[in-house]
Simulated assay, not measured.
Amino acid sequence: MIAITNAKLLTVTKGTIENGVILIEEGKIKAIGEDIEIPGDATIIDGQNKWVTPGLIDAHTHLGVFEETIGWAGADGNEMTNPSTPHVRALDAINPLEQGFVDAYMGGITTVQIMPGSANVIGGEMSIVKTYGRVVEEMLVKELSGIKVAFGENPKRVYGEKKQMPSTRMGTAAVLRENLTKAKNYMKKMEEGNDKKSPEVDLQMESLIKVIKREIPLRAHAHRADDIMTAIRIAEEFEIDLTLEHCTEGHIIADIIAEKGYRAAVGPTLSNRSKIELGDRGWHTLVELDKAGVPVSIITDHPVVPIEYISVSAAIAVREGLDEETALKAITINPARHMGVEDKVGSLEVGKDADVVIWSGNPFDFRTKVEVTIINGKVVYQREM
């Protein structure tokens, strides 16, 4: 058992406890509050003058599938042989021993969603993992959390250069519609057929059936406002669930996104304007989406922005007009809800996974350091004093 004492606890969902205690047992938060009896056998971590938050969460990364520094050998996030590859799994390409995972938990990030890249219209399956472990099986929070789809410049550039469809935004939308329609037809045949008449199992269609049945969402890479609207249009046509990823021009249509009830994972705003569709990239997107009532998550798109800078991104967003409470939610409970794992992570609550970060001061001060990171009740990082 671990007891964190005398600390300022930012619970996220239940306010701030100025001088609180957290009890951790068997990987879960057992108790939290001011007047908590501490068992005699507990390992005590004194949190005097420290701030404590839930483990931070990044809902949109390529951690371990686009490894840093090694180029081609570690680039496993885009299967650029077909514009539709719903059946490939990021899970099969994650290298848990990549340095990015160490950077993550040293930066207080304890949970991440890892997905394929955006070269293909339908990029494949994604997973949610903790940032500490030897193999992905030890790290899994959710094996299948969505299917990546992409709009805008990336797929039309990749396949336009190959002189094949899609080479336009029209073609991108058509490829997605075509494959969702195939999945609906395949599902119908599988349900109606018997052992002799049922079609052979098609792994691509099996993946998309989960979307058609609304078991998992499409997670749509879309920067420009018109691309965001295309993603929404197709989701409504097929009556499927959708989250908006990047949402760079979301501020232009913030009222529409809010009215339709979509969540937005915004970023990587700390990056440069590397292509035309990022021309209006800025912190104002988060501010305007929040004002409109859109639940926002701040993302790094690691390795585009190194994952340890998600707290820096949140701090800059505060400087540029986002209030601290919303900024904290944008790297904790909002991404947990965005990914559908808010019952496990994203806040300091009894019964949730004991993913806890102890900070030297206010997390929104650039000078603040992570002093301790706890994942599933285990201290995985402790800064040398």
Rank of each mutant, 00 (worst) to 15 (best):
I29C: 04
M190K: 15
A265Y: 02
G77Y: 14
I307S: 01
T11G: 00
P155G: 11
E153T: 06
H338C: 03
D226Q: 10
V65L: 03
P116V: 11
V287W: 08
P54M: 04
D58F: 12
R319A: 13
K8F: 03
L91H: 01
F66D: 12
I331V: 13
D301F: 12
R89F: 04
K188L: 11
K329V: 00
K142I: 06
I4A: 05
I70A: 04
A265T: 05
W359Y: 03
E277D: 15
M190T: 05
K329Q: 14
V296M: 09
W51Y: 12
T181M: 13
V129R: 07
A254C: 08
N179R: 12
R273W: 02
L180I: 12
P363H: 09
Q99C: 01
V141G: 00
A235M: 07
T11P: 01
E26Q: 14
K291L: 08
L208A: 08
A265H: 05
S313W: 01
I109L: 10
L244S: 09
I147N: 09
P335V: 06
V380A: 08
E153N: 11
D241P: 00
R177Y: 08
K182Y: 13
G261W: 10
I114Q: 08
P83T: 10
S167N: 09
E67I: 15
I256V: 15
V52L: 09
I22F: 11
N6P: 01
L23I: 11
E384G: 01
F101T: 10
G77D: 12
L9S: 07
G40Q: 11
G107A: 04
A119N: 14
E325A: 11
Y262P: 06
D92Y: 04
I94Y: 03
E125Y: 02
E138D: 15
D76S: 13
T69R: 14
G293P: 10
K352P: 00
R367M: 09
L218H: 01
L328P: 01
H60M: 06
T53H: 06
E34G: 05
A31T: 02
N19Y: 06
P166Y: 07
D355T: 14
E191N: 13
A264Y: 07
L10R: 02
V266T: 11
E239Q: 15
E191F: 00
K30I: 00
